[in-house]
């Protein structure tokens, strides 16, 4: 049972943000399959992508149930256009090199881990069930991503240079994760979701410890330059992802394995 004082559309939009972040980052991560710099990294990235796609399935199933219009999780993944996707811009950016990929995974995982941890205490039992399932997997993802950020940041001169460049490039996108709008405020008031400022404080602690250990410098620039993804305003990159991901269902509507 979801909180009654919250309208369905608001809850639906918020669930889409969770599902869309997981699907789009899962899809990006899956692009490494067969291209990883080492067999073990290739396999690890494919496993991470699987986790994320599993999470999006759970969030979309709940979102579709909340919406109550007969749509399925698959419909939400394959039959929406870019403007209806509510993921943060950070997750749709192209992978870049493996350093940039791992830096993005780290910056997002730290947020994802703290958000899911908080959501295990949600007043909505279905939200807390999904969060409790997902957070156990994201803990391993965060462990792996921070380990690689440290090893590459505090690695060779070349790997350090690339990790710093990745951090500088991604930094203006990280602020969007913590930028609360009316949807986030309504969810926090209903006790379903935490205040994003609380998540930011916890994220800052993980990020600052890890960057210190990685000998990387926190960029001296605004983190909230590129925003709007949560409201459906995306970079040009999302359209290309959807074109590839949704092709089959668009070309052969209703096709099944």
């Amino acid at each position: 049972m979801v909180a009654l004082d919250l309208d369905r559309q608001t809850l639906f939009d918020w669930l889409l943000r969770l599902g869309d972040n997981a699907l789009i980052l899962g899809h990006r991560t899956s692009e490494w399959c067969g291209h990883g710099p080492a067999l073990e990294e290739d396999i690890a990235l494919a496993n991470t992508a699987l986790d994320l796609i599993g999470h999006c399935q759970m969030w979309y199933t709940l979102a579709a149930e909340v919406e109550g219009k007969g749509r399925t999780a698959d419909n939400l993944a394959y039959l929406r256009d870019a403007i209806q996707f509510k993921n943060v811009k950070l997750v749709e950016l192209p992978n870049g090199d493996i350093g940039q990929t791992m830096m993005r995974e780290f910056l997002f995982n730290a947020f994802h881990f703290e958000l899911l941890t908080a959501l295990t205490g949600s007043t909505d039992p279905k939200v807390s069930e999904i969060a409790a399932k997902a957070v156990k997997e994201v803990a391993y993802q965060l462990d792996r991503a921070s380990d690689l950020v440290v090893r590459l940041g505090d690695g060779t001169e070349e790997s350090h240079r690339r990790m710093q460049a990745a951090l500088d490039y991604l930094w203006p996108y990280v602020g969007e994760m913590f930028l609360a709008d009316a949807t986030d405020d309504a969810l926090a008031e209903a006790g379903i979701a935490p205040r994003l400022t609380d998540i930011q404080t916890k994220w800052e602690a993980i990020v600052s410890d890890t960057l210190d250990e990685a000998t990387l410098t926190r960029p001296d620039r605004r983190p909230d330059v590129h925003t709007g993804g949560k409201q459906g305003r995306h970079t040009e990159h999302l359209g290309y992802i959807l074109a590839e991901m949704q092709f089959l269902q668009r070309a052969y509507p209703g096709a099944e394995w």
């Binding site: 803990a139 462990d143 921070s146 440290v150 993980i206």
Partner: peptide
Amino acid sequence: SDGRMGRAAR
């Protein structure tokens, strides 16, 4: 993992 296991080990 609690997300910080690797750091504790390092």
